[in-house]
């Protein structure tokens, strides 16, 4: 029991930033073995090596995309057994939590999701989590094998280049009637913006946008930020659910969170309370979101955001 296994998220071999953060965190336990699943997995080799993975195991079988979650668990569980993993680390996310949960059952391992820090030693891993809408921090201690998902922006990604030896794994899939078969898949429109979960800066709009996200998007683009939305804005049909920040959407922890026209209900704060800095723009000085603000601006976002966007463009020029 001496290996740490890191399951990378990638799109056609392009490894996500939270995955590189996870590899960086994994290095404290020794040289990690990385796993990349799905089409283009071998393309992850360069990034895996740059961030210290001595080995990259790839699986590109069609089974992975034919059913939900279970085939990925088949693959990771078999690779974990092969390398005798004492710790499996995954960048946090909705699918990652499900893979981790099933994996913990299969490996009879401890399960920790959404860790914001990880330490200790293999076999006795320690973690910190931010719970109850970020109002509490808990420390946990694990005995034995552990499966842990690590929240984005918890650990800065730092390179430590090695050459990753790439091997393709042969997986035996459980198959059968217990599969959740994917019968249709419609790709989403690319926005060209960073992924919400791992973005350094997030600009979110709420009820105060009155349904017009143009100013929110313009500021996000000037800052190189991801766009988010409150549940009120999503429920009103103003922005897709995939961009919802909060308890029933994404949990984000960026360097800077801009809340524009968002009142700050507990359900929203649960998704952004661990952000390093918060900028609030809201017409209502009594809005609870101001309690989280490092800088709060009482004003109309339709006036304030374009003025800031202009300033940012001038400074960056």
């Amino acid at each position: 029991m001496s290996t740490v296994l890191v399951v990378l998220d990638h799109l056609d071999g392009a490894v996500t930033k939270p995955s590189l953060e996870t590899l960086t965190a994994a290095r404290q336990y020794g040289a990690p073995v990385a796993v990349a699943l799905g089409a283009g997995a071998e393309g992850a080799a360069a990034a895996a090596g740059e961030y210290g993975a001595a080995r990259l195991v790839t699986v590109t079988d069609a089974e992975l995309d034919q059913s939900l979650v279970a085939p990925r668990v088949d693959a990771v569980a078999q690779i974990a057994a092969e390398v005798d993993a004492a710790l499996v680390l995954l960048p946090a996310g909705i699918t990652a939590a499900e893979v981790a949960g099933r994996l913990a059952v299969r490996l009879d391992a401890a399960l920790i999701t959404d860790a914001v820090a990880i330490g200790g030693s293999l076999g006795a891993v320690t973690t910190s989590q931010s719970v109850f809408a970020g109002n509490w921090t808990t420390e946990s201690e694990v005995t034995g094998t552990a499966v842990v998902t690590l929240k984005a922006n918890s650990v800065p990604a730092e390179p430590d280049p090695v050459t990753a030896e790439v091997t393709a794994a042969t997986i035996s899939y459980a198959g059968g009637s217990a599969l959740a078969r994917i019968t249709a898949s419609e790709a989403k429109r690319e926005t060209g913006r960073p992924d919400l979960g791992g973005a350094r800066i997030v600009v979110s709009g709420g009820r105060g946008t009155d349904g017009n996200f143009a100013e929110v998007e313009a500021l996000a683009d000037a800052l190189g930020a991801a766009v988010g939305a409150s549940r009120a804005a999503v429920d009103a049909g103003w922005y897709p659910h995939a961009y919802q920040v909060g308890q029933t959407g994404k949990t984000v922890s960026p360097q800077l969170y801009v809340a524009a026209g968002i009142s700050g209900a507990i359900q929203h704060r649960a998704g952004m309370q661990t952000s390093k800095e918060v900028l609030v723009v809201n017409t209502d000085p009594e809005a609870p979101i101001f309690a989280l603000a490092d800088l709060g601006v009482v004003g109309d976002l339709h006036t304030v955001l374009p003025a800031v966007t202009e300033q940012v463009k001038q400074i960056n020029r």
């Binding site: 509490w136 808990t138 005995t143 034995g144 800088l295 009482v298």
Partner: peptide
């Protein structure tokens, strides 16, 4: 297999600067 060894309430955030636009 995992146990919580400490739980601390996050200190209330220091009041930030508020300006009126």
């Amino acid at each position: 297999r995992s146990r919580v060894t400490a739980a601390t309430e996050r200190p209330a955030k220091q009041a930030g600067t508020v300006v009126t636009d």
